[in-house]
């Protein structure tokens, strides 16, 4: 590269430099306008009236309840999708079976469906007038407008994250190492804990990170199914909306800033993971392209 750049007979050097500058400037402006600026606004608005209204907004019982609910939902949804994601990626990457491409497409379904629809599905299935609604009501089980519904909707929306992170990684690693472990006398369980899991460790962490960020930030699906009962079924994103609609921007932005911090933390953790495992960067960049081809092949 340097050789080419230094070659004296390279006339279009200045225009190329100009084009490069313009492109970088355009990208920065775009990022600044659409990503960084809103991000900054969240924090300035949250702290606009000083620190104590900010703290008060977070200490409000409804806010505390929302934070607690969000953490609870994530604490259930993320481990579930961790297990499911590993199992699905394992099946897809290491075995040949009928309906494998269908499974791959299904994993992507929550990405393809609008979150509002995802929430509605559960209302239709478990709601008062839904398929199982009367039966559930007769047995005193509340799903819709209650925590179980929020958990279900969140699990649905976030289930591709871990699986999609792991499928390309595990496919590229193949089956040889596990088969070697078995031929050396290891049980399937030992092969998983001692060979597979260490090999996917970093990708798995990354998938969990993204899954968690989405589980805490999910709005659409949860909004439909939660019923917005303050202090009971309000998650943080829903609480932000309520506060904002009540013309309480400081409190809204205070809670929002927590979510923004979560996003920031996710990004930082991701950067740290990538610097530790360069092969992960490769795998996660490949992921969407591969999945797209596969989905295309199925269609």
């Amino acid at each position: 590269m340097t050789d080419v750049a230094n070659r004296p007979a390279a006339p279009p050097r200045r225009p190329r430099g100009l084009a490069r500058g313009a492109l970088i400037a355009a990208a920065l402006l775009y990022l600044g306008g659409f990503l960084i600026l809103p991000f900054a606004v969240v924090f300035t608005q949250a702290l606009a009236r000083g620190f104590s209204p900010f703290v008060d907004a977070l200490a409000d019982p409804a806010a505390v309840a929302a934070i607690r609910l969000t953490l609870t939902v994530a604490a259930i949804a993320v481990p579930l999708n961790l297990v499911f994601g590993v199992a699905a990626a394992w099946a897809v990457a290491k075995f040949e079976f009928r309906g494998k491409s269908a499974l791959l497409t299904l994993i992507d379904l929550p990405f393809a469906v609008s979150p509002v629809i995802s929430g509605l599905i559960y209302v239709l299935v478990f709601g008062a007038h839904g398929w199982f609604g009367p039966w559930l009501a007769a047995h005193g089980v509340r799903i819709v407008f209650a925590v179980p519904g929020i958990v279900l909707a969140t699990v649905f929306v976030t289930f591709p994250f871990v699986a999609r992170e792991l499928v390309p990684l595990m496919q590229s690693q193949g089956r040889d190492e596990e088969e070697t472990a078995l031929s050396l006398g290891a049980t399937g369980w030992q092969a998983f804990w001692r060979v597979t899991l260490p090999n996917i460790r970093v990708g798995l962490l990354y998938g969990v990170l993204l899954c968690n960020a989405r589980a805490m930030g999910e709005f659409g699906a949860v909004s439909v199914i939660s019923g917005h009962i303050r202090g009971l079924t309000n998650t943080m994103p829903l609480h932000v909306e309520i506060l904002y609609n009540e013309y309480n921007p400081t409190a809204a932005f205070a809670v929002a800033s927590l979510l923004a911090l979560l996003a920031l933390g996710t990004l930082l953790a991701r950067a740290a993971l990538e610097s530790h495992a360069p092969e992960l960067r490769h795998a996660s960049r490949q992921a969407p392209a591969q999945t797209a081809t596969r989905t295309g092949a199925v269609a």
């Binding site: 088969e179 078995l182 031929s183």
Partner: peptide, 16 residues
């Protein structure tokens, strides 16, 4: 495979 007492060597080594 665990009980067959065979050593298996792969083309691409398959080292852990």
């Amino acid at each position: 495979v665990q009980k067959r007492r065979v050593g298996f060597v792969f083309q691409h080594y398959a080292l852990f």
